[in-house]
Write a protein that binds this DNA or RNA. Structure first.
Length: 473
RNA sequence: GGGUCGCUAGCUCAUCGGGUAGAGCAGGGGACUUUUAAUCCCAAGGUGCCGGGUUCGAGCCCCGGGCGACCCA
């Protein structure tokens, strides 16, 4: 590292021996003014500098944190070039670790090299970026300037890897299924469409991996999961991004009560790993994620929070009247199940904080769930509501091919009635069921919302590195 | 889709009863041997989101559009 670092070539490689965090943990105990005798090499961005004539201080930031640099004219090579560095420049520094008289742990700059030039100025060193739109568009700047932003993405990575490990320990196999679907299915959502030229084929981007994963259960993979990027052609909001990440898993021989246990254990485990506790604060409200979570049926909750005692045998005119009183738009093809779900979503769901498993949904609105073992007209399905948001959706899977065909046909009819979110008939999936799907429990968790929960983020854009935005200009 | 607010220097923000824009930081020059958003001095930096209108004169008032934030449906 000789010559003039500013005019010299940028090196092709560099070998740091330590990091800001390691320096702090290894040498934090030095006394004020004490020199450690130990030499380290670190690399990162120069984020602050305080020139002081014949000495200069700088703050170097790397992926682990910040450490102060201490340069002296008499011992730092190319001292004038060092004080000419721009804020944001990447540099590599080698020197002895010491603590200044004022007690700041520092690396004395005994040699240094510039690793990259920041031609564009960094945002105000005190205020950072305040325009959230700029934060999303220039995430590469945001990650340096906004500590919470970097922390959220580190947490996201930790949540995904911990989830994988936890599932693998329970003998789940991670698989990858197609993103291109010839038939859109597995959820109720409007898909994106695309076209394959060689096959001259219209394809849909998946809205859920569900139907492929259950084919694998038919194929003998008894426990499978996929962390799937899915695509839904819907609006943007603080809780919605057109592409997002869903964990889906299927467990043979299990029913939805097994899945409830799995969810409460997985989520409380993740909270312990990421937050160190299962008692969180979210939006100034307390949230206790420790298992077990409350379980209550949709109808019980509708009575409790909505003050409505209705059921599938309530006369349709009565349900329609209750909807209209609450400004819920009613369509002609809505049956009692759909009307009850609408009433629940309008009157009850907003009042739930959770965690709570809302169990047993109307068959009419659940085309892939198995009939409830005791309650005709209902299915064995639940949603997990946590911090007032729908976190997951799960059911005892429908295994009967004839019943599945009837449900698909009802969906097809709804689609013909103008329901753009309805599914189509998937003949190959029916064929798979005809080969035999064992009793199976399935689950989908919105991983972005889970990350929001565990990082305290209030908008999904804070947990997606490059959220969908309108193009600039 | 509706409402409210915002858009001024690279970044963060000012200004005014309509009279042609100002500061901090960054960037440039200089001073300073232990700073912590270091400090001090000097110089430079602007198509005030875009397009119309009113006016002798518009960043400011009016109309239309764009982009964003928040709230509501």
């Amino acid at each position: 590292m000789s010559g003039s670092p500013l005019s010299g070539q940028i090196p092709y490689r560099f070998d740091p021996t330590s990091t800001a965090a390691a320096v702090e943990s290894d040498f934090g105990g030095l006394a004020d003014g004490e020199e450690s005798g130990a030499v380290v090499t670190v690399a990162g961005r120069l984020m602050l500098r305080r020139d002081q004539g014949k000495v200069a201080f700088g703050n170097l930031q790397d992926s682990t944190g910040r450490v102060q640099l201490f340069a002296l004219q008499r011992s730092t090579p190319d001292f004038e070039d060092f004080t000419g560095l721009h804020l944001g420049d990447w540099i590599g520094v080698t020197g002895e670790v010491l603590k200044t008289r004022r007690g700041e742990l520092s690396i004395r700059v005994d040699s240094w090299v510039r690793l990259a030039e920041a031609r564009r100025g960094f945002p105000d060193k005190w205020h950072g970026i305040t325009d959230v739109d700029t934060r999303f568009r220039q995430r590469y700047v945001d990650l340096w300037v906004t500590d919470e932003s970097r922390a959220a993405f580190v947490a996201r990575s930790q949540i995904l890897s911990t989830t994988r490990r936890w599932l693998e320990e329970r003998k789940f196999l991670e698989v990858e299924t197609p993103v291109f679907h010839p038939i859109s299915g597995g959820a109720m959502a409007r898909p994106f469409t695309t076209h394959h030229n060689a096959l001259d084929l219209e394809l849909y981007l998946r809205i859920a991996p569900e139907l492929y994963l259950k084919r694998l259960t038919v194929g003998g993979f008894e426990r499978v999961f996929e962390i799937a990027r899915v695509f839904r052609n819907e609006g943007l909001s603080t809780r919605h991004n057109p592409e997002f990440t869903m964990l889906e898993l299927y467990q043979a021989y299990a029913d939805y009560t097994d899945i409830m246990e799995l969810v409460e254990q997985l989520v409380s485990h993740l909270a312990m790993e990421v937050c160190g506790t299962t008692t969180l604060e979210y939006e100034d409200q307390e949230l206790d994620l420790s298992a077990p979570w409350r379980r209550a049926t949709l109808l019980e909750l509708l009575a409790e929070h909505g003050g409505l005692s209705v059921d599938l045998d309530t006369p349709r005119e009565e349900l329609v009247r209750l909807c209209e009183e609450r400004d819920i738009p009613v369509k002609d093809h809505y049956g009692p199940g759909k009307l009850i779900l609408e009433l629940y979503e309008k009157t009850t769901e907003p009042k739930l904080w959770g965690p709570v498993f809302v169990t047993d949904y109307p068959k009419e609105v659940s085309p892939l769930s198995r009939d409830h073992r005791d309650r005709p007209g209902w299915v064995e399905r639940f949603e997990g509501i946590v911090a007032g948001r729908e976190l997951c959706n799960a059911f005892t899977e429908l295994v009967d091919p004839d019943e599945q065909r009837a449900r698909f046909e009802a969906q097809e009819a709804a689609k013909a009635d103008g329901d753009a979110e309805a599914m189509g008939v998937d003949e190959d999936y029916l064929r798979a069921l005809e080969y035999g799907l064992p009793p199976t429990g399935g689950l989908g968790i919105g991983m972005d919302r889970l990350v929001m929960l565990l990082t305290g983020a209030t908008t999904i854009r804070d947990v997606i590195l490059f959220p969908t935005l309108r193009p600039e200009q």
